[in-house]
């Protein structure tokens, strides 16, 4: 029983990070109808910068803020300079740009920060004694911290979309960019803002995942997270905030349980298992479980 609970806790914690990055993917997709395949590597880059700041003696919270800010600037810049000019051509052009960013950023990380594994300090108390007991399972500080961040962030993002002018404009551009422009919405600023927001969320996800990930901060850290996050976003149909959150948590728990109870599939086959589940979901519901509309515009 304790073991199950502990596995659930660890699954929910990893799942929260997946959900965060999935949220970033959904924000981009809702804004501009594309998947940012470089989202994970973008987050890895900002996280490396945050780590580098901590080695210079910066407090962790400041490094986290820097990662978020850098994520915003990079996200908005990429949209403005690299994605928008080619978006008119086709999906493939955008994907190839993203693949270029993917390889380029990862190699840049290696060049700037070296290939050895690093230890990113956690922004939350994560000592051996920093836990609360819950039905026999230990809830450690950083797990709790990640959960709180996820809840707060989801609240903020949905407030942004539901209650603010900017959020309204983002929804309008996602619905129909031409009509939104004709109604006076500055579409280009809104699009850049969406990518910036997504980059910032990714920057936050990066600094939260690395203290939890078993291999700490390495060049491959965010890739596995990105795979899980894109599966989570797909689970929700790519355009549903709630779907991405549920998807992220489900995948996190699923992974933990599979690893714990089905050793034949666990460990080495973790990602494959998750991905097979997602592909099956897609086959049954081509727009995900929470997808609200037909996504291919004709």
């Amino acid at each position: 029983m304790d073991l199950l609970l502990e596995r659930l806790v660890s699954g929910l914690t990893n799942g929260s990070v997946y959900a965060l990055l999935a949220l970033a993917l959904v924000v981009v997709f809702r804004g501009s109808g594309t998947i940012n395949f470089a989202q994970g590597e973008l987050a890895l880059f900002t996280t490396f910068v945050a780590w580098w700041l901590t080695t210079l003696g910066s407090p962790v919270w400041l490094a986290v803020l820097a990662s978020i800010a850098l994520g915003f600037v990079l996200g908005a810049g990429i949209e403005r300079l690299l994605v928008r000019p080619v978006q008119r051509k086709n999906d493939t052009a955008v994907l190839i740009v993203a693949l270029g960013l993917f390889t380029g950023l990862n190699a840049l990380d290696a060049l700037l920060f070296g290939t050895e594994t690093k230890v990113m300090p956690s922004p939350f108390p994560n000592g051996l004694d920093d836990y609360v007991s819950l039905g026999g399972a230990r809830l450690y500080g950083d797990a709790l911290g990640v959960w709180v961040v996820l809840v707060v962030l989801v609240g903020l993002v949905s407030l942004l979309f539901r209650r603010t002018r900017v959020g309204l404009h983002m929804r309008a551009v996602a619905d129909n960019p031409e009509s939104a422009a004709l109604a006076g919405v500055p579409t280009s600023r809104v699009l850049a803002l969406g990518w910036g927001l997504s980059g910032a969320i990714g920057g936050l996800a990066g600094v939260l995942v690395t203290p939890l990930a078993p291999q700490q901060l390495s060049l491959t850290t965010m890739f596995t997270v990105f795979i899980a996050a894109s599966a989570a976003a797909l689970f929700g149909g790519l355009d549903s905030l709630g779907g991405a959150i549920v998807g992220g948590l489900v995948i996190g728990v699923l992974e933990a349980l599979v690893t714990g109870y089905v050793p034949a599939l666990g460990g080495a086959m973790q990602q494959t298992t998750v991905l097979v589940v997602i592909v099956l979901i897609l086959l049954v519901r081509p727009t995900g479980l929470f997808g609200s509309r037909r996504l291919e515009r004709v």
Binding site: I96, V97, G100, F102, G104, A107, L108
Partner: peptide, 18 residues
């Protein structure tokens, strides 16, 4: 040496699309 070829690949891909 090393990662520069990865960067070159990335830059090349993006430059090609443009």
């Amino acid at each position: 040496p090393g990662p520069v070829s990865g960067i070159a690949f990335g830059v090349l891909l993006i430059a090609l699309v443009f």
